[in-house]
């Protein structure tokens, strides 16, 4: 049986996407790249990093709005733009916020580089956890461990074990480490605070500063 589909416009092209899929899934299927941080296939979408925002409108005009493509399901007749000026402006600012708080996390560096950021206007911090929640979802959804969770609120939010002790349900499977973006060796290119070199996005050849040798894809989880 043919799966049910809906028709939508994606970056100007009329496409048919499977009903129930998200905009992100549909876009990737058609080779359109939308950067993500807190999204991982086979884990439930979280919608926390907001980097995957797209501009959504309806056929026949009306107001458009931004929403995360990882949580927004395709609907009949929606018009989606993944690279409109409004999206780019928002994504650039999000990348700047992200890299300013975690300049030594590879995925933050990657997204900043890809958005063409060369200077960060905020004071740099050095957080290692970007609160993407991948480890928590990995633990509870794939490993059935439920050993991790968020504690605190707002700027004091952090990933924590229940009462800061390892529960019996944690089998030390290291699933959390496996998905953690902070565990990827970062680019050593950021030397001066606030300055991003962005060499990897400009050179034809792979610069020798890329630790993973994954020049061009930035991160395996974020395929172009």
């Amino acid at each position: 049986m043919k799966p049910k589909t809906v028709n939508l416009t994606l970056d100007g092209a009329l496409i048919e996407a499977e009903k129930g899929s998200t905009i992100l899934q549909a876009a990737r299927q058609f080779g359109i790249h939308i950067p993500t941080v807190c999204y991982l296939e086979n884990l439930s979408p979280y919608g926390g990093c907001r980097v995957c925002v797209v501009e959504i409108g309806h056929n026949g005009g009306g107001k458009t709005f931004l929403d995360t493509s990882c949580t927004h399901e395709v609907r009949e007749g929606i018009v989606v733009q993944t690279k409109s000026p409004r999206v780019i402006r928002a994504r650039r600012m999000l990348a700047e916020l992200l890299v300013a708080s975690a300049p030594n996390v590879k995925i933050a560096q990657d997204i900043a580089a890809r958005m063409g950021l060369l200077r960060v206007r905020f004071p740099m911090e050095d957080q290692r956890c970007i609160l993407c929640g991948l480890c928590i979802r990995m633990c509870s959804e794939q490993m059935d461990g439920r050993a991790l969770g968020f504690a605190g609120r707002g700027v004091t939010k952090r990933v924590s074990l229940p009462f800061e002790t390892r529960p019996e349900t944690c089998r030390l499977c290291r699933g959390c480490d496996y998905v953690c973006p902070g565990m990827v060796a970062p680019c050593p290119g950021i030397k001066e605070p606030g300055e991003l070199c962005g060499r990897c996005t400009r050179l034809e050849e792979m610069p020798n500063c890329c630790p993973t040798g994954t020049f061009g894809c930035f991160c395996e989880r974020n395929p172009l």
Binding site: G47, G48, C49, R50, M93, L97, R153, G154, V155, K157
Partner: peptide
Amino acid sequence: EESCGKCLPCREGLKR
């Protein structure tokens, strides 16, 4: 202080 901290623009953006 009241932001839940789930999404980046609210958590980091308001701080900035």
